[in-house]
Design a protein around this nucleic acid. Structure first.
Length: 344
DNA sequence: AAGGCGGGGGG
DNA sequence: CCCCCAGCCTT
């Protein structure tokens, strides 16, 4: 990418960030490697996810699936199991498909080119830029929420980050401050955004570029970034039946549409023969980003083996128990429900 | 171009 | 209670 005279005016900002990063980089497991597979996995795991939340998932995932081939050879359900509780489950489905893409289309060798990385399932412009810059010396800024926040403050820029053009807009701002070492620059921006230039109560007095920050000099840090779109949440009622007998209970796998893609759940309906055996009803409130779930779970104890068997056969439910359910990925609230039932 | 997708944590 | 987090896919 060619740099013109105008943009070099801000190059010292990027260099200060690099210098700061050299001394203050967070010690994270994926910082010890340039293996594109591991960097790719870490980028996917940490999409819309704080480092502290995803760290165990990342470590467990890499331990079980240390390379592309191991992941490609695995069952999708096992990949989902390692994603349990992390959310945005299409990410797990997509990295599994992408690993097979790499085996089939790239002979198992991770593609080095930005445009090729971008073709992988679940990889967008951010992730392609991050992997190509960190592992292969690519020169694209990895523009994410941190970039929006840091750059909008440095330039006191009120461009609306909820605008669909925000990515390309802030990519241009990034290009103005971006030094030659793009990989480290991208990671420096992430660490600065996470540790210093935080959404609320940023530590401006410790910021390596506070001299260059227009919003800081105007005492208007809290006004940036500008985001107009508001999150609206609506209520959604879900009904489940915890149908159990002799320590076993019934489950089925969800489709890959709507929420909780391909995770396991309880039967959503029961037959009239089972209605008399409803023991208790529990209501669980569970907050998602766009939905407030009200989950009603009725516990149904089945005594008749014949009724049990016919109910399973008619609906093709799967049988599991309080040991084996650990092998399957359940949504968080259902996971918690099972754990609580185990105590009783 | 807009909306949907999890779950956790901070203020 | 609201906002945000190493974004991406579908419509």
């Amino acid at each position: 990418m060619e740099r013109d005279n105008k943009s070099s005016e801000f190059l010292h900002i990027g260099n200060k960030l690099l210098s700061w990063y050299g001394k203050n980089a967070r010690d994270l497991p994926f910082r010890q490697t340039k293996d594109p597979y591991k960097i790719w996995i870490c980028e996917i795991v940490f999409q819309q996810t704080r480092i502290s939340q995803g760290l165990n998932h990342y470590n467990n995932f890499i331990k079980r699936f240390p390379d592309v081939k191991t992941l490609a050879d695995a069952e999708e359900n096992e990949v989902l199991l390692y994603w349990k509780g992390l959310g945005y489950y299409s990410r797990a489905i997509n990295i599994h498909k992408a690993s097979q893409q790499i085996m089939n289309d790239y002979q198992g060798v991770f593609p080095a080119d930005y445009e090729e990385i971008l073709k992988l399932k679940g990889v967008g412009k951010y992730t392609a830029a991050a992997v190509s810059s960190i592992c292969f010396g690519g020169r694209m800024p990895a523009v994410d929420g941190n970039f929006y926040r840091v750059l909008s403050r440095i330039f006191a820029d009120d461009f609306d980050i909820s605008n669909s053009k925000a990515f390309s807009y802030f990519s241009q701002l990034a290009a103005m401050v971006m030094p030659d070492n793009v990989g480290d620059f991208n990671q420096a921006m992430m660490d600065l955004g996470s540790e210093i230039c935080k959404p609320k109560n940023p530590l401006c007095s410790e910021c390596p570029v506070n001299d260059d920050c227009l919003a800081f000099s105007m005492q208007k840090i809290s006004e940036y970034p500008v985001k107009t779109k508001k999150v609206k949440t609506e209520d959604l009622a879900l009904k489940y039946y915890f149908v159990h007998r002799n320590g076993q209970f019934l489950i089925r796998q969800r489709k890959d549409d709507f929420i909780w893609k391909k995770l396991f759940e309880f039967p959503p309906v029961i037959s009239v023969e089972l209605e008399p055996f409803i023991r208790n009803v529990k209501t669980i409130n569970h907050k998602l980003t766009h939905k407030n779930l009200i989950i009603e779970i009725s516990s149904v104890e089945v005594h008749s083996e014949a009724v049990w068997n016919s109910f399973i056969a008619e609906n093709q439910y799967l049988i599991t128990d309080f040991e084996a359910f650990h092998d399957k990925s359940f949504p968080k609230p259902l996971e918690n429900y099972i754990q609580n039932s185990l105590k009783d």
